[in-house]
Design a protein around this nucleic acid. Sequence first.
DNA 1: GGCGAGGTAGACAGGTCTGTCTATCTGTCC
DNA 2: GGACAGATAGACAGACCTGTCTACCTCGCC
Lengths: 190, 190
Amino acid sequence: MAIPSARDRILDSAFQLFYARGIRAVGVDLIIAESGVAKATFYKHFPAKDELVLAYLDKVDGIWTGQLHAAAESAGPDPADALVGIFDALGTACRRDGYRGCAFINAAAEAAPGTPVHERTVAHKQAVLAWMRDLAAQAGADDPNSLARSLALLLDGGLAEGALTADPEVARVAKESARALVSSALPRTA
Amino acid sequence: MAIPSARDRILDSAFQLFYARGIRAVGVDLIIAESGVAKATFYKHFPAKDELVLAYLDKVDGIWTGQLHAAAESAGPDPADALVGIFDALGTACRRDGYRGCAFINAAAEAAPGTPVHERTVAHKQAVLAWMRDLAAQAGADDPNSLARSLALLLDGGLAEGALTADPEVARVAKESARALVSSALPRTA
DNA sequence: GGCGAGGTAGACAGGTCTGTCTATCTGTCC
DNA sequence: GGACAGATAGACAGACCTGTCTACCTCGCC
């Protein structure tokens, strides 16, 4: 457990501050002060604030995607169960202190379409959607694409509403709705 | 068709600029230039930028709530149909040029919880939810609260994703999912 | 004619933001 | 010991942002 490298400290501070307050609301000076790093060091690792923002989004992507996959896996081997289990990640997130919705949606709200930040967000959402479509296909859905999109809507809705009120009820309803949509999208099973 | 008052011109410019670029990204100087108004006039009508932001949100609330109600009404007198019809407003919004998702969600992403802007967003979402809960109760749902929340998730999900890619497919899937959830939440009908 | 409401034009103060640059210190490897 | 990589501290430039203030203009109304 050595002291984290300067780069890691910067990224950690940025992670917390950007998420809690928004990207534009946090200046590099604050990140520098919070991470206890010199300004020159900051700009050596991240030549512009935008690059730090992208690194922040990549970090969020790693964490959140990991949580989604873990939730899906721990729901069991059946792909249909996995699709529903995804929503446990939403419930866990909702209950976390300082929860403020989806970092990507929040970032995209501050970035103009076409900018790298905005596009990184689109890429993330498309990756999640593609993964869910795969699961839907494995589950034998009649229309894996529509099912995956429906579930993505529920998930993004839960994340967006979470930015307003961190109400675990939202996650409960989302999971139940997901269960209903999944089972109605599968061919009749015994 | 007289020239709109100075206040209206300011609010119109703010409406377009805030929505298209985000609130923090737009300075009062730009709004002043765009609306062709003097700085003193601006500050006479809106003593601080924050008050303009709130007026902007109120304007959005009036427009968007009106569109939701209109979509619900034009789906017919049956409350269950109205609940599904709401999603036509999402489809129309998606297809509009310059569509960038829900102004409230975007605004909340930039405002810290507890600020007036954030709370105005929460109030708006709660009003929409309460209205949908009413419709769900009129439709005779077993659990109007859960049904309304499910539909709100789909709606907010559609709005949040709309900020990323204005894909009408999203609205189509949302409406279909809404139909499925509504019919599965009602007691068996012939 | 005179008054007042509301608008225009734009300088200005004080703060914050990003990004650059200089000068110094510390530890490691040879 | 000496060279070097990487960090520190902090001044600085230049842009931008909010909000204030002065000075003038214009139109309707009494």
